[in-house]
């Protein structure tokens, strides 16, 4: 099976056959990860650059591990903030990297649109590891994989993404990917954290966390951070926790069949209590393992695409 897409910029517009192929291929790699020797030679001779303009240890390690398991040669390039402030423009950096004959670029950037920009200036296959508050497609794919692994399907499920939707790159990718696979997606959070017109994407908005828990099959709980401008979206973390936090009490009262995901890192006692984060409803560590398999799948499918 080969993908119709050449790059993975986001899940917006990616056909369901492609998503299915990525998820199915990830299953094979998931089995590889259980073997004593976890390495396959599929991307031998391919060069992948991990271009991280924003700190994200977890995502970078997950990609790096996936690349190593596929026997690719990898280069890490990390920088933060605007490239031009430091003398070299982003485009020049890319041209330099390009001159080293790389096959794929995994990119994380604070500005939305950078992966798309890369497809215009580079011949390499581009994988978005998170751009601004736009998309983070491999995160959504691993979420989908993990849900499917646990519940056996995606079609017909109701999934609610909870937290700071406006500043999240995970939310949009979840919405696009899950909707393509036939699931219903909703969001829940204080209205200051819900971006304008999101309902135009066919997304229901909850502001009552209990209702969100009782009316959904899956909760994808996002990490809450106090923004630079503390106090402008939410007054305090305590208030957020009291009104939107996922607690064992809320789950037991509203929906004991709920499945809980969290992209990490967890802010214990804020968006989720430790009791829930370590408890029976969640699959947070499975997500981490599945993340490697999903990234292997994406790298393999794009890297061997004819």
């Amino acid at each position: 099976m080969s993908l119709t897409i050449k790059h993975l910029i986001g899940l917006h517009g990616v056909p369901s056959d492609d998503i299915q192929t990525i998820l199915d291929t990830a299953k094979t790699f998931r089995e590889v990860l259980e073997r004593p020797i976890k390495k396959v030679p599929t991307l031998q001779g391919k060069t992948i650059v991990n271009l991280f303009y924003e700190d994200s240890t977890r995502t970078r390690i997950s990609f790096e591990l996936a690349e190593k398991r596929l026997s690719a040669d990898t280069i890490n390039f990390s920088k933060s903030g605007s490239s031009t402030k430091k003398g070299e423009t982003f485009k020049d950096t890319i041209r330099n990297i390009e001159a080293m004959k790389v096959d794929m670029i995994v990119v994380r950037h604070e500005s939305a649109g950078v992966p798309q920009f890369l497809t215009r200036i580079s011949k390499a296959s581009i994988i978005n590891a998170g751009d601004g508050r736009h998309e983070h497609p491999t995160q959504a794919l691993l979420d989908m994989y993990s849900i499917r692994e646990r519940l056996g399907k995606l079609k017909g499920l109701k999934i609610c993404v909870i937290g700071d939707i406006a500043h999240s790159r995970v939310a949009l990718s979840n919405i696009f990917g899950l909707q393509t696979m036939g699931a219903q997606v909703s969001v829940c959070g204080p209205l200051t954290m819900i971006p304008q017109n999101i309902e135009s994407l066919g997304v229901k908005i909850y502001t009552d966390i209990s209702k969100a828990i009782s009316e959904n099959d899956v909760l994808n709980v996002l990490r809450i951070q106090l923004e630079r401008k503390a106090g402008t979206s939410i007054p305090t973390l305590r208030e957020y926790h009291n009104y939107f936090g996922i607690t064992a009490e809320r789950i037991e009262k509203n929906n004991k069949d709920i499945l809980i995901l969290h992209p990490g890192p967890i802010n214990r006692g804020v968006e989720i209590t430790s009791e829930v984060a370590d408890g029976p409803y969640q699959i947070i560590l499975d997500q981490v393992t599945n993340g490697v398999a999903i990234r292997m799948s994406v790298l393999y499918l794009l890297g061997t695409r004819q």
């Binding site: 508050r133 736009h134 971006p195 994407l201």
Partner: peptide, 13 residues
């Protein structure tokens, strides 16, 4: 501009 397109593109509105 803040609106549906800024939400879709993930750019600060």
């Amino acid at each position: 501009n803040e609106g549906f397109i800024s939400t879709l593109l993930g750019l600060p509105p």
